[in-house]
Design a protein around this nucleic acid. Structure first.
Lengths: 198, 198, 198, 198
DNA sequence: CATGAATGAGTTTTCATTCAT
DNA sequence: GATGAATGAAAACTCATTCAT
C-alpha cells in the first residue's frame, strides 16, 4: 500500500470518502479538472455516481478539499521537526531533501499541486493554504538574509529560483529525462545553494 | 516574422484565422483547454462559431496548432543569430535574457506553453516540437560539458534546473511577488550560472 | 376523531406514521408533489428516510393516503350531525360555516386538497373519494331543487358556483387581501345564497 | 389552427420559440412544473433538448415567460374596449362573458394560470402581472361600490366571490359535470350579480 | 466564404428507493 | 422495527460540431 493512499486512511470514517479522494487525485492530475467527469471519478473509486455528493457538495468542493488536504500535508511534512538552532545551510539541505522525497513518495499529489497552482476554481481557503506555503518559504529566506549567508536579493526571488529549480528537476525526471539518484539529488541541492549563497 | 507573432500587433490587418488563434490563446491560458467553450473563442475572436471549423478541424486541432506555432516561435526567437563562436558563458547570458524577454513580451503565450506542457490532448507533432526545444537545451549544455565549464552532471539535469529556475522566477513575478527589473534579471542569470558552473 | 385529525394536536403522542403524514402534508402543499423530495419529508418528520417506506409503499402511495384521509375527514366533518329535517336554508348556513371553519382550522390541508384536485398521480380510490364529496354536494342541491327554493339550474352548477365562491374567498383571505371575520363569513354566506335562491 | 397557438404566432421570429412555449404550456398544465421534464417539452415541440436553452435561460425562465405572456394576454383580452360610460351592470356582463370565453377558447392557458397562481418559482415580474389583474378587478368593484349598486363589502371580497364562482364553474364544466351553454353562462352571470348586488 | 441556429451526446447533480446494519 | 448510506436512473443544462442559408 503506497503512502499516497495513507493520507486518507487514518480516519475511522474510512472507505468511500478516501476512495473518492484518491480517484479524484489521480484523474484531476491526469486529465485536469474540467477534463475529468464525475462518473469517471466514481467508477475509479468503485462507488455510485451519487455517492460522491454525499461527501462533497460539488465538483469544486472536491477539488478544493483535495488541494487543501495535500497542500497542508506537504507543508507540514516539509517543515516538521527542524530545530530552530539548526544552521540555515543545514536547514536548506533538509528542506530540499524533503521536497524531493515528497515528490518521490507522492508523485501524483506533486503533479496535482503543480497543475492546480492558482487555478481559478480554487476558493479562498485553498488560496490561503497556498499563501501559507509561500510565507514559510519567504520566511526561511528572510532568515538567511539576516544572517547574510545568501545574496542580497528579495526573499521571494530566492524562493522562486530554488523552488523553480526543484520543480524543473522533478518534472524532468518524471518526463523520463533521467533517474534521480540520491547522489544527483545532493548535487542538485549543491547547485541550488551555490545559486543563492553569498 | 510569422503570422503567430503578428497576432499581437495591430488587429486591423489580422485575418480571421489570427483572430481565432489569438482568442483561443487567451482563453485556453485563462480557463484551460476543457474549461474553454468553442463559442466563447468565436465570440472573443469576433467570428461566427462555425467559422472556426473552416480553419481548424476540431478543438484539439486548434490547441495543437497554437502549441506548435508558439513553441516553434519561442524556440526560433531564443536560438536565432547566436554565432557558434560566441563564448558559451556569453551564449548562456543571451539565451537567459531572451527567455525572460519572451515571457515579458508574450506573457499569455508563456502561460499557455507552461500550462500545456505534456497535456494529454497534444498530438505527436506537438510533442515533437516540445522535443525539439528540449534537444536544443540539452545540446547547449552538452557543449558546455565538453568545454568543462559546467559541473559534470547530465545535461538534461542542468537544463531542468536552469529552465525550472526561469519558470519559477517568471511565475512568481507574474503572481505579483515582485517586479522584474533588468538588474534582477541579471542577478538571476548570475545565480543560475553559479548554480551550474564548474 | 381519526388519526388524521390528531396529527395537528400534540406531537408527543404522535407515532412515526403521523409524523410522516404531517410532514408530507406541509411540504406537498408548499412545494408541490414533484417539488418535494422524500428525504426532506423524512427530515421534517424526524425519521430516517427508509422509515417512510415501512409505512407507505411509495411517494404516490403517501400522497394518495394523505388525499384520501383528508378528503374523507373534510367530508365527514362537514356533513356530520345535520338532522334531515333541518330546513335546507339552515343546512346551507351550517355547511357554509363548516367549510369556512375547516379552512380556518386546517389551512394546510385546505391548500393541499385544492392543489391536488384532479392531480394525475391520484389513484382510483382517491378519485372515488373526490367523487364522494362531489356527490354529497350535488345531492344537497338536488334536495333544494326538489323543494324549489333554488334556481332551476343543474345541481352540479349550483354546487360549482357556491364552492367556487367559497374557495375564492378563502384563497383571497389567505393571500392577505382581507381578514375573514365572522361577520364577513356570514355576509359571504348571504351572498352565496342570494346567488342561487329562487 | 386554434387560438391557443395564435398567441405565439404573430412574431416573425416564428417557429421554434412558439413551439416550445406551446409544448411547455400543455405539459406544465397537465403535469405541473416539477413534473415536466425539459426533454419532454423539447420532444413535444419537435426541437432538440438544447434548443430550448437558446430561447430561455432556464426552466424557471420558461415558466415565467409563459405566465407573464398569458396573464398579460388574459388581462388585455378581458379589459379591452369597454367604454367608461358603459353602465357597470353592463360592464359586469361583458367582463363575465369575456372571462368565460377566455376559458373556452384557451382552456389549457386557463388551467395553466389557475395551477400556477402564486407558485413559488414565479419571479417578481410574474407576480407584478398577477397583481395587475388583481388591481383591475378590485378597481372595478370599487367603482361599483361608489355607485352603491353592490353590497357594502370590501371590493377584494366581492372580486374573490365572483372570480371564485367563475373558476368553480369552468373547472366543473371541464371536469365533465355539465356542458356550458350560452344560456347557462348567462344564468351563472345572473347568479353572480345577484350574489353581490345591493 | 461566413454564419449562427440547431442539435444530441455528455456534463453535473438530484432523489426515490433499497438494504446492510 | 428503524436507520441512513448507497445507488443509478433521470433531471437540468452545456457545448463541440454541423449545415442551411
Amino acid at each position: 500500500m503506497t503512502k499516497v493512499a495513507r493520507l486518507y486512511e487514518g480516519t475511522e470514517t474510512a472507505g468511500k470518502r478516501e476512495a473518492i479522494l484518491n480517484a479524484a487525485l489521480r484523474l484531476f492530475t491526469e486529465r485536469g479538472f474540467h477534463g475529468t467527469a464525475m462518473p469517471s471519478v466514481a467508477e475509479l473509486a468503485g462507488v455510485g455516481a451519487g455517492t460522491i455528493y454525499r461527501y462533497f457538495e460539488s465538483k469544486e468542493a472536491l477539488v478544493n478539499t483535495l488541494y487543501r488536504d495535500w497542500k497542508n500535508f506537504q507543508i507540514t511534512t516539509i517543515l516538521k521537526d527542524v530545530p530552530e538552532e539548526t544552521p540555515l545551510r543545514e536547514q536548506f539541505r533538509i528542506y530540499w531533501n524533503r521536497l524531493v522525497e515528497f515528490a518521490a513518495e507522492f508523485p501524483i499529489a506533486f503533479g496535482f499541486l503543480e497543475l492546480h497552482f492558482h487555478a481559478p476554481y480554487l476558493d479562498e481557503e485553498s488560496r490561503a493554504m497556498e499563501e501559507r506555503g509561500h510565507n514559510a518559504l519567504v520566511s526561511f529566506f528572510q532568515h538567511c538574509l539576516r544572517q547574510q549567508i545568501v545574496k542580497n536579493l528579495p526573499p521571494e526571488m530566492l524562493g522562486a529560483l530554488v523552488v523553480g529549480a526543484y520543480v524543473g528537476l522533478v518534472k524532468a525526471s518524471r518526463a523520463g529525462c533521467f533517474q534521480l539518484t540520491q547522489e544527483m539529488i545532493d548535487q542538485a541541492e549543491a547547485c541550488c545553494w551555490e545559486a543563492i549563497r553569498r
